[in-house]
Write a protein that binds this DNA or RNA. Structure first.
Lengths: 149, 149
DNA sequence: CGATATTGTAACTAATTAAGTTACATGAAG
DNA sequence: CTTCATGTAACTTAATTAGTTACAATATCG
């Protein structure tokens, strides 16, 4: 089954941005982090700009900046801004009038709605700041072990 | 975004099978319920046979039967037997050595594992019997309203 | 035994989607 | 006014899944 890499790629980009809060990063630079094309980056994070999670500016010296402090950016918002559900479970009718299908859809739809709420709650408790903290912990560890050798 | 219809289609098929516990239904018959091809049906529910949720027999009078009572078949088992995750969230490394990516993956992977467990728990509380009960409720309602008119 | 009905599965084709690419208009800075 | 950047449309490519065809294996019935 194909897995969705967009959330993971976007978080990767955002942590890099959080690590360089002073200057805008270009789509070109962001693209190299996730080994892709600048246009793909712009397209992917366009929704984040609309949600105020990042800002973009054109022209010389332009690029992308976080729209607010990493502490105030939750993974739930990021995921929502990407415009994709985490649970791509279809509950759309395909045999209108079939009571069996109606029963299946009713039960499955209840599950889907409740599950999406649960997932959003879990993600809302993780912020971009948690990710950068985790990164710095790893970074410092490498430094220490390098000194030790 | 493309949504996965396999769980919904499979449940549709299984409820029909639960409603006719006395005789085997052929792939051909099952295929008509979900407007597809018998081979697609066989391929889709092959995993359910391996999991003991259904049984199949060849030859004249052959076809598919539930492997046990609907009360003892949970949606968690069915979903697992389909061999697809409900949360197609990639946490696979794409930039080996990048500490930012490692931090992102660590956090996201924890989330994924915990979320999958939560979803499985929710699904394990719903059985095929719940679905057939819901179907019969709808069926009886239609009957009543028909008589009323 | 031979005819018929059914699953199991491999191999191929078609349809759909997401990713990647090209091209260029728009706008900002020096 | 040149350069650098985003915004976005349009197109191409790649990957995945669904659908189809074909046929071997197997079971039943007469």
């Amino acid at each position: 089954m194909k897995r969705n890499t967009r959330l993971s790629s976007t978080l990767h980009i955002l942590v890099h941005m959080a690590e360089k809060p002073e200057h805008a990063l270009t789509s070109e630079q962001l693209a190299t982090f996730i080994h892709t094309n600048p246009v793909v980056v712009r397209r992917t994070i366009a929704g984040l700009r609309d949600a105020g999670i990042v800002t973009s500016s054109r022209g010389h010296g332009g690029g992308w900046l976080l729209g607010r402090a990493p502490e105030n950016i939750s993974l739930a918002e990021i995921s929502a801004a990407l415009g994709e559900t985490l649970l791509p479970l279809s509950t759309a009718p395909e045999s209108p009038g079939c009571l069996v299908e109606q029963a299946v859809i009713a039960v499955l739809d209840d599950f889907r709605v409740a599950a999406e709420k649960l997932l959003a709650e879990k993600l809302s408790r993780i912020t971009l700041a948690d990710l950068t903290a985790d990164f710095r912990r790893r970074y410092d560890l490498i430094g220490v072990s390098s000194h030790a050798v």
